[in-house]
Every structure is written in structure tokens, then in C-alpha cells.
Design a protein around this nucleic acid. Structure first.
Length: 590
RNA sequence: GGGAGUGUAGCUCAACUGGUUAGAGCACUGGACUGUCGAUCCAGAGGUUGCGGGUUCGAAUCCCGUCACUCUCGCCA
């Protein structure tokens, strides 16, 4: 077999190469056999070039007659200019073609289940099963190229800022907090298990105590939880940690990175990114990851609600709850059927229902309008509502539910009513998160970020006196309503860490057994430090304008955690199990 | 764990209210054709209607169960 070399890529040849000899190699993208002359569109990573086979080269022509889609071939021939009217403006290389002298079939392909050109209309299940074909389509190649550029830019950027890229272990100690761990049985220590890292959190802090000062890693993380459109069990983070810095340093550093990424990939300039507090984000947008591309901010109308006889409103307020509203511009055009569907939809977020009114001729109509007569004018004014608008109410005895319902609703309505400019980008930092949040079910305080997040210095006393009011030095970076990263300044003093563990109900014994190494590290000269992690998959999703995380991962998993190509996970042999001292509760034959 | 949706030829889809032999386009096979580029023309082959059960004279269609895939609530410090 000939060596599959080539002199040019399939995107390169132009009129200026006419009369030159060229050797190309690639896949048969399509073939057109005219009995005499045969045309092949030859494809490689970079483009497509048309090859012509003429009967005047009988041996080569006979070989070419057998070519089918996705055969891998090597062609040597002469670059010739296409005659007048025969150029193909759809191809970069459409002014020329290669007149083949020799053809080598490097590898004949079985009939493919689909071709790269039609992959975009093939079901995802089939694409994932034959991922090696799917990856040949232009879109997938572009996405993976972008992903490569993003990680390259990250490494260059942090290198310029004197960060070291340091690997951390995959085989880690299991900590039951947070997400469910993926467990790996130990062969050498019977009955014991490693866990795959949910993130390199503790290791990167240890690196700071270890004096490395600036660390970054493109880190694979594992969380054994149910997936969503934008998240799967195995994902990648840009992980960063720095010593002797404050929150502003991290924010400025990451803004610089985002600026370079968007400029380089999309030629879009990232402006100085505004910061809002968690409290403000919740009050105005009902969410800690507000989408700032549209309005419809939440308005507290508790004062007006209590002036009505509408029991839904007054009842909620009497129970210590809240009545809030959003004004949906042009929302009055929604049909009864559509608003009824919204009322069902909001129940997923804990709402009892969705009271609405439409604004018509300067007054309220339909829905709950008949209950709101006394406050109609004030409501319209307070909401800034116009004729043709829809006002949706969030009502509950818990303000948290009201925020959630209206926060989710405003995003859904903005999409449904096409209120978002697809070319708009809105970045925002959310800062000053509460340190902890009361978990009503478990009757305890939970970390909002994680247990190593530092409180504001002036709030340290509140850990004991008023934990819910203590704010943390945590920050999330949001783009278009999507959280693409978050981090915090860490606790670097053993005393404070002990207090936080105490607040979280982690006993000293428990803390010692789970995080003893961290507590030790904090005793021996831990510098002040902090960091952040950005979701690489989500970042690439934004840059490539997809809502499907599987699009930006070469070999993704399905919702069931399966790899449809390799058929993982799979049963294993009894021998393998015995070696690991494992006995499954459910046995599936290997 | 819950809710919703999808599953028919290799691929994308159709098949009325349960009713003849489950169709079409692309792909595939054979043939024709010397300028196509979504080639064209002629002919052909290709089906466990995801799987299992049930109702019925009769099931792709209705019912129950199950599996896979998607979206989603819970979950994801």
C-alpha cells in the first residue's frame, strides 16, 4: 500500500495552482458517475476539492467507478482550471479541479448509516452510536476546533500571568458532602474506595499552602447526578487558585480572560462587567443568575395586595409571604390556553397557580382583574404597564418561592415572546452571597458555596450570632442568564474554619476524619488565597451557540449515563469483581 | 424517584376513526449516460412498526408492562 501522504489540503488549491501536480487525501464526500467522466468531491478536515476521472486513464477510471461515500482515498493529479460556466461558487476551490492520474483506495468504507453532510438532520441517538461519522461533519469539527482554541487561550493567558498548570489526582478521598461521588474500588485495600473528584477544590487550596501561589488546570470533574441539557456527570472546568489576592484581583483576572476569549473567538468586545449583590439579583430578577438581556423585573406589590379583598393575595401576606409581579410587554396577546399552560408550568417551581391580568384601555381585564378594582390604577402605574401588557403575579407564603416562580417565568416568557436579541451579550458578576442557607428539611445550615468559603471580615462574628445574615466572599460570573463560573476567597485561618464547620453541624471528629489534612494545612502557614472555576463545556456552548452540552463534547454520555458508541457502562467478569472483593447486589451477566 | 414527549426500511418521515399486500424521499444493488456539483434516467432489493403481554373478527394505531433516547422537577455543596 502506498504511503498516504499529501501535498495539499482539500481547501487550498486555487487558480494560481493551475498546471501544478498535487496529491490529495481524504474521504469521498459524494460521487457523480456520468458513465464517461466521473466526479468525486474529496473532503478532508479543511475543505472539499472536486476530482475528475476521465476514460483516457482507463485503470484509474475503472477504480474510480467503484468509489462510494466515505471511502478513504489518495489522488494524484493535475490542478486544472474549470472551463467557463463550470466553476462552482459554493466551493472555496470551485474555480479548479484535479484531473486524476492515479487513485489509491486507502480504505473502502461500508455503506455509512448516514453521511457527514446529512448528520445535522439525523437523530442524536444514531449520531452518538456512530460518533466517528458524526465527528466528520463540519459543525462538530468547528466546535472541537473552538474548544481547542479556548483551552489554548486559557493556557497562554495564565502562563502570561505566571500561573503553573498542575495536575491533581483522579483517585481521591470520598466526602459525602455535595454531589454523589463516583466510587472506585481499591484492590490493594479490600473494602475501601476512592472517589473521582467532584472538583480539585481541596487540592488547589493545598497547593496554595504549598507555596505555589498561582495554579490553573483544565480539570475533569465527576458528579454522579442526573444530567440536564447543559450538564452531564463528567465535565471540564478551568480551575484557578491564587495566593495573596482579594476578590477584585480574581474578578479582574477572569474578566481579562473572558475579554480575550470573546474577542478571539467571536470578535466581540467584552465591556467592564458590572457587579450586583446576591440580594439585589434575587430582589430584581428572582434569580442568582439573572439574564440581563431583557427587563420584566420583579416588583413587590405587597402594599397594594393587602388593600384588596383577594384572599389569594391577603392570605399569602398574612402568612408572612409575598406578592410580587412582573409586567410582560405585549403579553396580552397570549391566549387563555397559553396563560393556562403557564399556570400549570409554574407549579413545577412550587407555585399554587399563576394569577394574571391584562392591561386594556388603561384598566385591568380578565384573569383576577375583578379582585383588583381598588388598586387597578396604582398597580398599572407601579408596574409601568401599557395597554397590551400582561401582568403576572407571584404569590406564596415563602418569598423564596415567589422569587423562583417569577424568576423562571420571566426567562421563559422572554424566550417564548422572542424578546431576546440573539446578538446581545450580557455579563454580570453576582457577589456577596450569603455564607449559609437554612435547610428547612434537614433543620440545619448549609453552605451556599462550599464550607471553605470565607465570610466578609466584618461578618465573622455573625457566624455565631446571626448566621443567615453573614455574607461570603463568593462570586459567580453569569453570561446571558447562565452561570459559567463561580469561586470564592477561602478561609485561611484554622479558627474561622472550625467555626464554620461548627455552624454546618460538622463535629470536630468528623471534620478531622474528612478534612484533617486541610485543617493541618491551615495550621502550618496557609496564605490568604482564593480562586474560581469556569465551566469549560458551558463556555464553549455559549461561544458556539448551542444549548446541548453533548454538542461540545467529543464523546458525551446520554441521560442514562451511557456511551452509545462504546456501550459503557457494562457488566464485568466475576474475576474482576473477585479481585476487588466486590459482590454486586444485582448481577448482570457479562 | 416523579412529569412530559419520541420510537415504523440503513437515514428522515407518512400511513384518516382500528380495516386490502405498511408507503415516500435519500442511501443501497444492477443498468444507461463524457461536465456534474443535492447529477439525471430506467429497474430492483430492503420491514420483529423498540420489546413483551392484552383487548378485538382484525392492532403501527387502543390498554398494561418494559427498554432506549430527549426535555424537565427533585438532585447538582
Amino acid at each position: 500500500m502506498a504511503t498516504p501522504t499529501r501535498t495539499h489540503h482539500c481547501s487550498e488549491l486555487r487558480a494560481e495552482h493551475v498546471d501544478q501536480t498535487a496529491t490529495l487525501a481524504g474521504w469521498v464526500n459524494s460521487y457523480r458517475d456520468h458513465g464517461g467522466v466521473i466526479f468525486i468531491d474529496l473532503r478532508d478536515r479543511k475543505g472539499i476539492t472536486q476530482i475528475v476521472f476521465r476514460p483516457s486513464q482507463p485503470e484509474t477510471h475503472a477504480l474510480a467507478d467503484r468509489l462510494r461515500n466515505e471511502d478513504v482515498i489518495q489522488v494524484k493529479g493535475t490542478c486544472i482550471k474549470r472551463q467557463e460556466g463550470m466553476a462552482n461558487p459554493k466551493l472555496e476551490t470551485g474555480d479548479i479541479e484535479i484531473e486524476a492520474q492515479t487513485l489509491v483506495i486507502l480504505n473502502k468504507s461500508d455503506t455509512p448509516p448516514f453521511t457527514p453532510d446529512e448528520a445535522h438532520k439525523v437523530g442524536e441517538e444514531t449520531r452518538l452510536q456512530y460518533r466517528f461519522i458524526d465527528l466528520r461533519q463540519k459543525r462538530m469539527q468547528k466546535i472541537l476546533k473552538t474548544r481547542h482554541r479556548v483551552t489554548k487561550i486559557m493556557r497562554d493567558y495564565f502562563d502570561e500571568h505566571e500561573f503553573y498548570e498542575i495536575e491533581t489526582p483522579f483517585l481521591c478521598k470520598s466526602t459525602p458532602e455535595g454531589a454523589r461521588d463516583f466510587l472506585v474500588p481499591s484492590r490493594l485495600q479490600e473494602g475501601c474506595f476512592y472517589a473521582l473528584p467532584q472538583s480539585p477544590q481541596l487540592f488547589k487550596q493545598i497547593l496554595m499552602v504549598g507555596g505555589l501561589e498561582r495554579y490553573m488546570q483544565i480539570a475533569r470533574c465527576f458528579r454522579d447526578e442526573d444530567p440536564r441539557a447543559d450538564r452531564q456527570a463528567e465535565f471540564t472546568q478551568l480551575d484557578v487558585e491564587m495566593s495573596f489576592i482579594n476578590q477584585d484581583d480574581i474578578i479582574e483576572l477572569i474578566e481579562g480572560l473572558l475579554r480575550r476569549l470573546w474577542k478571539d473567538v467571536l470578535d466581540i468586545t467584552v465591556p467592564e462587567i458590572a457587579r450586583i449583590s446576591y440580594a439585589e439579583a434575587m430582589t430584581r430578577f428572582g434569580s442568582d443568575r439573572p439574564d440581563m438581556r431583557f427587563g420584566m423585573e420583579l416588583v413587590d406589590i405587597g402594599d397594594l395586595a393587602s388593600q384588596t379583598d383577594f384572599k389569594v393575595f391577603t392570605g399569602a401576606i398574612e402568612n408572612g409571604g409575598s406578592v410580587q409581579a412582573i409586567c410582560v410587554p405585549g403579553g396580552a396577546k397570549l391566549s387563555r390556553k397559553q396563560t393556562d399552560a403557564l399556570a400549570v408550568w409554574v407549579k413545577d417551581f412550587g407555585a399554587g397557580g399563576l394569577p394574571i391580568v391584562k392591561v386594556d384601555n388603561g384598566s385591568l381585564a380578565t384573569g383576577v382583574a375583578k379582585f383588583l378594582g381598588p388598586i387597578a390604577d396604582q398597580l398599572i402605574e407601579k408596574m409601568g404597564a401599557q395597554d397590551g401588557d400582561l401582568i403576572c403575579f407571584g404569590v406564596d407564603s415563602k418569598i423564596k418561592t415567589v422569587h423562583r416562580v417569577l424568576g423562571e417565568l420571566r426567562v421563559k416568557l422572554a424566550h417564548d415572546l422572542d424578546m431576546i436579541d440573539p446578538n446581545d451579550w450580557k455579563w454580570i458578576w453576582v457577589i456577596d452571597f450569603p455564607l449559609v442557607e437554612w435547610n428547612e428539611d434537614a433543620k440545619r445550615w448549609d453552605s451556599l458555596h462550599h464550607p471553605f468559603t470565607a465570610p466578609h471580615e466584618e461578618d465573622v462574628e455573625k457566624i455565631a450570632s446571626d448566621p443567615g445574615a453573614a455574607k461570603s466572599l463568593a462570586y459567580d460570573i453569569i453570561v446571558n442568564g447562565s452561570e459559567i463560573g463561580g469561586g470564592s476567597i477561602r478561609i485561611h485561618q484554622q479558627e474561622v474554619q472550625k467555626q464554620v464547620f461548627g455552624l454546618l453541624g460538622i463535629s470536630p471528629e468528623e471534620a478531622r476524619s474528612k478534612f484533617g489534612f486541610l485543617l493541618d494545612a491551615l495550621r502550618f502557614g496557609a496564605p490568604p488565597h482564593g480562586g474560581i472555576a469556569l465551566g469549560l463545556d458551558r463556555l464553549v456552548m455559549h461561544l458556539e451557540n448551542t444549548t446541548n452540552i453533548r454538542d461540545v463534547i467529543a464523546f458525551p454520555k446520554t441521560q442514562n449515563g451511557a456511551d452509545l458508541m462504546t456501550q459503557a457502562p457494562s457488566p464485568v467478569s466475576d474475576d474482576q469483581l473477585a479481585e476487588l472483593s466486590l459482590r454486586p447486589a444485582v448481577k448482570i451477566e457479562a
